[in-house]
């Protein structure tokens, strides 16, 4: 029943999925944290930008963002992100789109984490003479991130599955392979089962491991 799999590089496709996930996760963690810092910061312009960014980006369908990075950024504006061949360009554009989209959710997860840190922590930090970036970086964010492990895990799992949208611009990841197999093979149930199983293999351990990590690093009050 699963004989047809020999003709396809299933592992290779999932490896692309993993690469998309990890690169986008790293990027959106950085950008999302910066956005969260802007949203809680004292500068009105930055607060406004952070708020506008989150509210616009998280309400646009990911497909639109990914298609825009390919059609708009690449084909219209000629942005190729330093790559020459079609596959690499699309891979990088997909990562960019996923970062743009996921960071809005990462920002909100971290902001929720910041809300768990009592006001007194920041006041005590200010009272010993720390500057705003130091208060945030040394006292508030370290505690906020620990509290945000749970919500961030949700965002990471969602991101893993959202990488399938990259198939829309031809990135050869798991969902792209699935489409190809569906066109060529008759075993539709088996194809769905293989792809679904692959994703569960990626996301289930993510949830379990990060759940454990979240408990381990939790700040005791």
């Amino acid at each position: 029943m699963f004989d047809f799999l020999d003709k396809y590089d299933v592992l290779g496709a999932f490896w692309t999925t993993v690469q998309l996930t990890l690169l986008s996760a790293a990027g959106s963690l950085v950008w999302g944290t910066l956005l969260a810092a802007m949203r809680v910061g004292p500068v009105p312009l930055m607060r406004g930008f952070g708020t506008a960014y989150v509210n616009i980006v998280r309400n646009i369908p990911l497909t639109v963002i990914i298609l825009f990075s390919s059609l708009g950024l690449n084909q219209n504006l000629g942005i190729s992100l330093g790559a020459n061949d079609f596959d690499t360009i699309n891979f990088r554009l997909a990562v960019l789109g996923l970062i743009v989209y996921t960071s809005a959710f990462v920002c909100e997860a971290i902001r929720a984490g910041i809300n768990t840190v009592p006001v007194g922590q920041a006041e005590a930090a200010r009272a010993i003479g720390l500057s705003f970036p130091q208060v945030l970086g040394l006292v508030v964010l370290p505690q906020a991130l620990r509290a945000a492990v749970g919500p961030l895990t949700n965002a990471l799992i969602a991101l893993t599955k959202n990488t399938t949208v990259a198939a829309a611009i031809g990135v050869a990841e798991a969902a792209f392979l699935m489409k190809k197999m569906i066109e060529n093979e008759a075993e539709l149930l088996a194809i769905s089962a293989v792809i679904a199983f692959g994703f569960v293999c990626l996301t289930l351990p993510t949830g379990l491991i990060l759940g454990w990590v979240g408990k381990k690093v939790a700040v005791k009050r």
């Binding site: 009592p118 007194g120 922590q121 006041e123 005590a124 930090a125 200010r126 009272a127 010993i128 003479g129 006292v139 370290p142 505690q143 620990r146 700040v219 005791k220 009050r221």
Partner: peptide, 16 residues
């Protein structure tokens, strides 16, 4: 502020 020490009702020690 570094020259002005402050002690709070709720201690506010850095929990992490």
């Amino acid at each position: 502020r570094a020259d002005v020490g402050m002690v709070f009702q709720s201690f506010n020690l850095f929990a992490h």
